[in-house]
Design a protein around this nucleic acid. Structure first.
Lengths: 265, 265
DNA sequence: AATATATTCCATATATTTATAGAATAGTCG
DNA sequence: CGACTATTCTATAAATATATGGAATATATT
């Protein structure tokens, strides 16, 4: 069988009309491994996941990930060298954030891959959440249909700043923490669809648990907001309402919300 | 500021109605790092990239990546432990393949992230290819428009087996190796759009170079076939025409084509 | 059954990564 | 300016990863 490899060679031998160099010699894969280096360490994935949700100070990151400051800082340097995160000085503080939308997509792809391939991941998510959530997901297409016909109420259960940075059109902001206080506003006869940050986020499943306990018919959206964007669907908000960092390219990107989340505050 | 972290905790403290465990304790990030471990090594990325294009024997992989058999085998074991690749015995040979579509998506996301964030990657791709390709890409939307109105000829310049495993509707199979021999079949007055495997593949850029030298108006499609699929656009072929491996779930997935590509053959 | 072939396992020297403590730097605030 | 704070840099010991040669295993062929 004849086969042309990605570098233009055929079956490992040089091609007839050779390109100057091939991908292997070019060092391309070494460059890709720079990014791979970030996700080889579980703590770095955790930090990156946090940063995909918003800007944070080093201390906030260290606290959230149970690391010493020096260790957290070292991990952040690795991520900076791979250009996956950027910093902004805020007084004495240094605030880190994900460097671009592709970073969040990559983390999302990692999560979805892990969920699809590693039974352990699915099991962990099942154990943490209490119900059989994965069987009760609403597809984006189904949600769009039902929203149009007014059959459902859509709840965005993420923190308010994330809702303001962009949400599904028609969705109501209902941070998980406020859900129980506002249950009276919900019509028990209308189905509820909750969504959050994505396949590894547990806010929506937790919200669904709460709602079901009270007798509501509630389900989660498949995936979350990042995947909704990636599917090219309409996003509401994103500009007005929330003060963005005013950085180049800021706008509807969820990781450039105004406040640098900090442990002390 | 109040903030609920991904694990349901608020500002690092346990939540009011606590879930049994949080994501951090659950070992979820350790699981994600199992996958990260695969892409920390440039040779493994190279192998995975090869496997996303088709099933291959260990020897073929070792030759293509300039590794000793034992080293290639060791890398493949790491990838197997992360469940990113699967094997099939073919006589004395062992054929490896990417385990599912998500694997290819992940590699694709890695490539796109690297290209977006690392100037070095863009530079390498510019140097290998000879022209200013990145400025001359056709978007998927534009291509769809022009195909409908018959303004363009779409060339799939990947190897035939990959075309048969699924291609853009209306595209003509024209493996790069056969392009020059078939130039006479192309109308010089009609624009040509070439596509290949994705953002890191050089087949389409090389084809565009050949065509431009001969005076054709030729451009590359942004990204490649995997991204076309991911965008949810129609895919032609995929079932008939090519003998697939007959494995569970095989069908329109490009990595499960019939022949196990081998160095010797 | 015996031989040949392809692949994986094992042992090992070398190199890299990790977490951490302590020192150094860069910024704020009075 | 000087004290103070947040972060990064430096050094280090323990752990882990890498490539490789040679042995072991599994399958095909005769």
């Amino acid at each position: 069988m004849e086969y042309i490899a990605i570098d233009g060679t055929r079956n490992g031998t040089p091609p007839a009309n050779a390109a100057p160099v091939n991908l292997q010699q070019s060092g391309l894969y070494e460059q890709l491994a720079r990014i791979g280096k970030v996700v080889v360490n579980p703590k770095r994935i955790e930090l990156l996941d946090l940063l995909c949700q918003g800007e944070r100070s080093v201390e906030a990151l260290a606290v959230a990930s149970s690391l010493k400051m020096t260790t957290a800082s070292a991990h952040l340097q690795v991520m900076r060298q791979a250009r996956l995160v950027e910093i902004r000085r805020d007084g004495a503080r240094v605030c880190y954030r994900a460097a671009s939308e592709e970073v969040c997509r990559f983390v999302s792809a990692l999560g979805m891959l892990a969920r699809a391939r590693l039974a352990e991941v699915e099991q962990i998510l099942q154990e943490i959440g209490t119900g059989a959530r994965s069987t009760e997901r609403v597809s984006r297409a189904e949600l769009l249909d039902k929203v149009r016909s007014g059959e459902v109420v859509v709840l965005d259960v993420r923190p308010t700043v994330e809702y303001q940075a962009g949400h599904i059109p028609g969705a109501v902001s209902m941070p998980l923490e406020h859900l129980e206080a506002h249950l009276d506003d919900l019509d028990p006869d209308v189905e509820v669809v909750a969504y959050c940050r994505g396949p590894l986020c547990l806010l929506a499943p937790q919200a669904v648990d709460v709602l079901r306990e009270r007798g509501y018919h509630a389900r989660c959206l498949e995936d979350g907001m990042p995947e909704w964007r990636q599917a090219g669907l309409d996003v509401a908000g994103g500009q007005g309402g929330v003060v963005l960092a005013g950085l180049p390219g800021s706008g509807d990107r969820p990781f450039e919300v105004s406040a640098c989340i900090d442990g002390k505050q």
